[in-house]
Design a protein around this nucleic acid. Structure first.
Lengths: 199, 199, 199, 199
DNA sequence: TATGAATGAGGATTCATTCAT
DNA sequence: GATGAATGAATCCTCATTCAT
């Protein structure tokens, strides 16, 4: 009976809810979930501590919302790109484009990406959300390929594998972790590997 | 004069320190770093809360030690495998062997793996340690290959890329996240991809 | 200028004020004063949180009003019974009738009875109200008896003592606390004791 | 696994636990359970907030302990008096003695008495404890009377009724609520009533 | 070295009350 | 009058860390 969270119908309210999510987004990015306290979120959002609990059940609820926003921000461009695909598919063009898109996303959200992934191990909901995201991307792409006449063996596995490679490469690329690695060379490897797989 | 952490010279002391690390290992695995408190660690280790701070600077220090143990446990078999390599290298045999080893490691330590990786985003030291680990593996393997007469273009990039693929695949394999994926088919892809790269 | 509480003159307003009191009545009964929050009262009353403070100074003020309603509901029947008394008074009939009335009241309002009495220790106003209630009952009954020609020694003390006994018995009877007690036997004792006192 | 409350074995610890209970006792008496906060209790007890939770599960746990102390303090004299009874029982002496004892107890603990009774309506444990207390007193006294050869009809009901009367009278007597009442006259009524019942 | 009691700052959350609309 | 969003002080409790013994 208690703790009913307002579903903001007023414009003002939605804006305020978004402000809080945005504040959470920033703070979680900067200092992580455990490094952030609700008072800080409220202050950054320009609201009182109390009202935060008018919009969210608890601190974790903010995290979940931030996660959703992140997923939308980060993966919508990709999904849209897949939607726009048209026959005949030229993997030579497509693969680099995807890689670039993923890298761009990583660059823009790298901290949040880290912060959220770091929660997946403790928080089942966060984990599921990421799994569902991978599912939807894989399935969506598989459908598109089929529709566009690309007929390959084990499409699911190939797509998933390709996405894995791209993810892991982009992560490296953005965080640029090892100085002895020429990441542009590596990028070429990724591209080549994937293209071969789909031909 | 504060915070002087004893480097235990006595056998008993070393054992005690290890017990604490072990307790930390278990607890961090089970409930994560933030879900664990030092009193619990002490209790599980069978020591007093106070003495924990005789062996470790703070809670994070335990994490670092746990991390080291993990890395040793998890990656020593791999490194040893590389040490034992002898010419001529048969990638057809080697690659599956490596994959199996990594999967085995993942299986045995999956919770700890998660827990530690989730810290890398917030804790610089943890992050560096992981980077250093990747470095050392890459470098070590590169040296070995060279020594054993394998001469390929861009060895660093290739090795690193191969390791990335294996890591990410093993992770998927162990956590078995998507039901529509046949992970044995995917494993074959990984093997084939890598072998091609090195020939 | 602050905290001016409107004395509602409009019918609608009076109804609304009563609704709030009713909601308070129910909630205080169910979960006690401290277990109830004003938002809940407002919701149950079907009004906004804000307007509650248009009709009441603060939460405690609602309590006071609830108390008044309770007293009226619970003790008016008794007072009316006293009003209707006519000579000659037959204590053999009257005493059981009073006991039944008090028990009935207790049964109908037992939760509220508890809730309010539990406030008397902390809240002076609540306490006074209860004392005043006892006063008025005692005085009223004393007057009636006198008017009806019942002349006894120490009427005030006797009446008060009788009321005390009835109160405490009714409480026991309704809450039926001890299984080894036959409350009907006890009721007889109460009746006999009181009748003897007044003859 | 968490929240294990120390059962203090050390003398110092017991003293400290008692200090906290004492502080709770005072504060609950003065401003009630809801008017007291844990920090205040700690301060009054001369300890830190933290350690309070080393000795008690939560705030309510303190209340329960305070209740036990109160019951012991308040009712042990009575119980002991009953233990010492010897044949033949002279109700003329005994009843006033009991009344005096109960009044004395009420006087010494009146605030605590109020505070605790006010919790009984919300807190089941507190309620049960009071019921159990009444049980034990009634049973104990019944046994004694039987042992000492006092054979009366409905002893349980009579004892209980007598205790009720005494309780309620003592309460009135101590709080001295109505100026038109001569409480010494009333006391005589109580005494007479009870004595008659047991003869 | 070792103990575990003690510290107290910090954090999530609630809720009576106010205020802009 | 009425709404319900907003406020922010207050509260319970936790836990990393210290310290007396």
């Amino acid at each position: 009976m208690k703790n009913v969270v307002r579903e903001p119908s007023q414009k003002r309210s939605i804006e305020k809810k978004n402000k809080i999510i945005q504040a959470g987004y920033e703070l979680f990015s900067e200092v992580g979930y455990y490094g952030t306290n609700t008072a800080e979120i409220a202050k950054r959002a320009g609201v009182s501590t109390g009202i935060v609990y008018g919009y969210f059940q608890d601190k974790r609820d903010i995290l979940i919302c931030v996660l959703e926003v992140y997923i939308e921000k980060a993966f919508d461009p990709l999904i849209k790109m897949f939607d726009k695909l048209s026959a005949p598919i030229k993997f030579n063009d497509l693969v680099p484009k995807i890689i670039n898109a993923v890298i761009k996303t990583h660059k823009q959200n790298k901290k949040m990406h880290e912060a959220l992934h770091s929660m997946a191990s403790t928080d089942e909901a966060v984990n599921s959300e990421f799994i569902a995201l991978e599912d939807s991307i894989t399935v969506k792409l598989a459908e598109q390929l089929k529709k566009l006449g690309v007929s390959i063996e084990n499409p699911m596995e190939k797509i998933h594998f390709a996405m894995d490679i791209i993810q892991s490469f982009s992560h490296e690329y953005v965080f640029d972790k090892h100085e002895y690695i020429d990441y542009d060379v590596m990028r070429e490897m990724v591209v080549t590997t994937i293209i071969k797989m789909f031909e």
